Simulated assay, not measured.
Amino acid sequence: MRAALLALCALQLCPAALGGPGRPQVLVERSGARKLRKVGGFSWENCGDGKDPVVLQSLSVAPDPITIPGSLRISAAVTSAKALTSPLKAVVVVEKELGELWIQLPCIDQLGSCTYSDVCTILDNLIPPGMTCPEPLLTYGIPCHCPFKAGSYSLPASDFPLPDIELPSWMTNGNYRFRAAVSNNGEELACVKLAFSLQAQ
């Protein structure tokens, strides 16, 4: 499920939450911002060395393309061979295809190729400690706070409504790829690559 959460962030569904403490949990109108209308061509793969304790076993995102606003159906399965504790560092690299080249996008306003020092803190900002995990996580026994126990987590196909989403002006139409590596005290725990195309207006 952690990888599924990263996938959602990659699709720009939770950029405000990644801003950390004090950042509003809504998408603010930006100068030159455009509305995301479609996300298509979604694919994924694990990118660790085969020894990472956390492995994304499956991830399905439908429909293809995803129309926004609209509805998104996600199913995912993750296995973890060890408990995951704070701090969970996430290094995210986002690249855009330009002709035959892939150009790495900078980190601007906590979007793009950014390093997040502790995903656990981000989760606590999204869902304050003590609050019940939201559906459908609650129904399927998927935790939403650190530490995460070792074991298997599975999210059956679940529907999520998608509101209007604003993209920053520098995130233009085209093909993107996204790599997220999660580590704890220098030990890589998981690595996932995603690819998708964006269409905005």
Rank of each mutant, 00 (worst) to 15 (best):
T85Y: 00
A77Q: 12
E45D: 14
P53Q: 04
T85N: 12
F42N: 11
V61E: 12
S58L: 05
V61W: 10
P63D: 15
D52A: 15
V39R: 08
G41M: 04
V54I: 15
S86R: 15
V78G: 04
D52M: 10
Q57C: 09
C47A: 05
P63K: 09
S86G: 08
P69F: 03
S58Y: 09
A83N: 07
S71M: 12
D52H: 10
T67E: 11
C47M: 00
A81C: 06
S71G: 06
K38C: 07
P53E: 10
V39Q: 05
L72W: 04
A76R: 04
L56F: 06
G70W: 02
N46G: 14
N46Q: 14
D64P: 05
S60L: 08
L59A: 07
L56V: 05
V55A: 10
V55R: 15
G48Q: 11
A83L: 03
I68G: 00
G48E: 02
R37T: 01
S75E: 02
S86L: 09
V78C: 11
A76E: 05
L59I: 02
L56I: 07
A62R: 13
G70Y: 06
S75A: 15
V61K: 07
G48L: 05
K51R: 15
A83M: 08
G48M: 12
P53R: 03
E45Y: 09
T79F: 01
L56Q: 06
L72G: 04
G50M: 01
E45I: 10
L59S: 00
P53Y: 07
C47T: 06
D49N: 12
A81P: 03
S58I: 10
S58W: 09
V78P: 08
S43N: 14
T67Q: 13
V61L: 07
K82F: 03
S86E: 13
V54H: 06
S58E: 15
A77K: 14
Q57A: 14
P69K: 02
P63F: 11
D49T: 01
S86F: 07
S71D: 12
R37P: 00
T79I: 07
N46E: 13
D64K: 07
L59W: 00
Q57H: 11
G41W: 08
L59F: 03
S60N: 12
G40L: 06
G50Q: 02
I74S: 13
L56A: 12
V78S: 11
K51A: 15
D52G: 13
V61M: 13
D49I: 03
G50A: 09
G48I: 02
T85H: 01
T67M: 09
I74P: 11
I68A: 01
A77N: 02
P63V: 10
A83F: 00
D64V: 08
Q57R: 15
P65S: 01
G48H: 10
P65E: 11
P69A: 02
V78L: 12
S58C: 10
L84F: 00
L59H: 08
D64E: 05
A77S: 14
P63H: 10
R73Y: 09
T85G: 08
T79C: 07
S75D: 12
A62C: 09
I74W: 07
P65R: 06
V54Y: 09
F42Q: 08
V55T: 14
V54E: 05
